[in-house]
Structures are given as C-alpha cells and as structure tokens.
C-alpha cells in the first residue's frame, strides 16, 4: 500500500509540475501576444497618421494646381476675347475695304466711260455728228429712252429743240429762259431732278431731268429727259456726277462745232464774194 501510494503521489506531482510549466509557458505566450498586439496597434496608428498626413499634402498640391489651371483658363479666355475682338475689327475693316473697292471700281468705270465719251465728243467739229454722239451717250450711258436737246438762241433768248430721241423734235416746245422748270434750269445753271420717278407722266414742260449744258457759267442749252429705259428704274449716285461731267463736255463740243460750222459758212460766203469780185 505505501509503495503504490508513493508512486501515485509522485505521478500526481509530476503531472502538476507539467501543468504548471505549460501554464507558465501559456502565460508567457499570452504576454508576448499582448506586447505584439500593442506594437501593431501603435504601428497602425502611426501608419494612419502618416497616411492622413500624406493625403492632406496631396490635396494641397491638387488644390494649388487647380488654382493655377483656373488662372490659366481665365487668361486664355481673356486672350480669346481679345483675339475675337481683333478678328471682328479686321472683318469690319475688310468689309470697309470691299465697299471702298466697289466704289472705286464704279468711279473708275465712270471715268473710263467719261473719257471715251469726251474723246468722241471732241473727235469731230461736225455739229450734227456732235448731236448724234450726245444722243448715243444719253441712251447708252445714262439709260434714257425719250429725251430732247435744246440750244439757246441768243437772239430770242429762247431754248430751241435741235435733237430728240424716242419723241419728235417738233413736239418739244421752245422755252424762254427763266420760264418753268427748263427755263429756270437754263437761267440758274442748276441740274433739275424730279423728286420721284414712279408715276411720272410725260410733260414737255416738266421733264424727269433737266441738265444745263454749261461752259463755265454760260449756259448754251439743256438736255431734257422724259422717260428712262424700262430696266433703268432710278438714278444712281454715279449718274448725277456723270450728268454734270458729260454736260460740260457736251457743251464745249456743241459750242465749238457750231462755231466751226458758222465760220465755215461765213468762209464760203466770203469766198463766194471774193470769187465774184475777182472774176
């Protein structure tokens, strides 16, 4: 009995020792785990701090870049507005130039026409031929369909019809200087244009247009227009200038050709007398 009891006691002691050792080891392991846990929690905290710090700095960078970009966009918008303004100015200038070009082209054409017309008017001293050239010019350059040419008779102080187109010369009445629209135009030397062409009915005493033929201030006759070509609906700015310039050239051409015709006639009369006397 005692021997087995001793053995039992020894075995129980030994198992208790073993358990105690295992418990100690478990306690040590638990301690180590707790320490490790603390270390990790500390590490996580640090990392979170670092991450938060890092995130904050990145946001700041992004924010500053966004501000810069916004400024750049504003600058570019301003630049764009300035460029658009300049383009608009250039376009306006361009339109101005284009309009000016058309005006100059028109004037150039008018001067070319005038050059040819005056060249033709002064190319002859034949009175009838000069009248014919005036008629052609008024039809083709002015666009008149019915008109007359009246010249001043200094003896009677009346404007006498000498040529006409679209109407008969004899239909146009002689007009005393100073009387009516035609007579007044001859007296003052001022061009006359009716206020409105539409609805006009031919009246020999009230033409659409009356242009005095002037050499300086001396009126030698008038051109009276009663009807325009169907396609010529109104007068253009160029027409008014053309009228005046042509009237000047026509006047000198008429005057010199009439003077030449008179001198030719007188010369032949004198020649006749001389022939009579010398025979």
């Amino acid at each position: 009995m005692s021997r087995s009891s001793d053995d039992n006691d020894r075995s129980t002691y030994s198992r208790g020792e073993e358990f105690l050792q295992a418990f100690k080891k478990g306690a040590e392991f638990t301690q180590e785990l707790l320490k490790e846990n603390e270390k990790l929690r500390y590490r996580v905290l640090k990392l979170e701090e670092a991450l938060s710090q890092a995130g904050g700095e990145g946001g700041k960078d992004q924010s500053s870049e966004a501000v810069q970009l916004r400024q750049r966009i504003e600058e570019l918008e301003q630049e764009k507005a300035e460029i658009l303004g300049q383009i608009k100015e250039i376009e306006e200038e361009n339109e101005d130039f284009a309009n000016r070009y058309v005006e100059i082209e028109e004037e150039n054409n008018m001067l070319a026409n005038l050059y040819i017309a005056s060249f033709q008017l002064h190319s002859t001293l034949d009175f009838k031929e000069v009248l014919q050239i005036i008629v052609e010019i008024v039809i083709n350059l002015i666009g008149a369909e019915e008109f007359g040419i009246l010249l001043l008779d200094e003896k009677t102080n009346k404007l006498e019809p000498v040529a006409a187109e679209g109407i008969t010369t004899s239909d146009i009445p002689a007009v005393p200087v100073g009387q009516g629209i035609i007579g007044e135009a001859a007296e003052t030397g001022e061009n006359y244009f009716i206020a409105s062409i539409s609805g006009y009915v031919r009246d020999y005493e009230k033409p659409l247009v009356c242009i005095p033929l002037k050499i300086k201030d001396q009126v030698i006759g008038v051109i009276t227009i009663y009807k325009l070509l169907v396609q010529k609906e109104e007068f253009t700015g160029v027409d008014y200038e053309l009228f005046t310039l042509l009237a000047g050239h026509a006047a000198t051409a008429v005057f010199s050709s009439r003077l030449y015709s008179d001198s030719e006639r007188k010369l032949s009369t004198i020649q006749g007398f001389i022939d009579l006397l010398t025979k």
Partner: peptide, 28 residues
C-alpha cells in the same frame, strides 16, 4: 442692248445667245 423687255431677252436666248445684258452700259 437697250431692249429690256422680258420677251426680247427670251427671244435672244432662244435664238442661241448665251447672255443678255441691258444698257445703260455697266462695265463691271
């Protein structure tokens, strides 16, 4: 030409003209 009526234009074009310009003369 000075003839500005539509029928004049049509006649000229039907005869074989390619263009019909009316007077007064416009150089352009």
């Amino acid at each position: 030409t000075t003839e500005g009526a539509v029928e004049d234009r049509e006649r000229a074009l039907s005869l074989g003209a390619n263009e019909y310009i009316t007077k007064p003369i416009q150089t352009t």
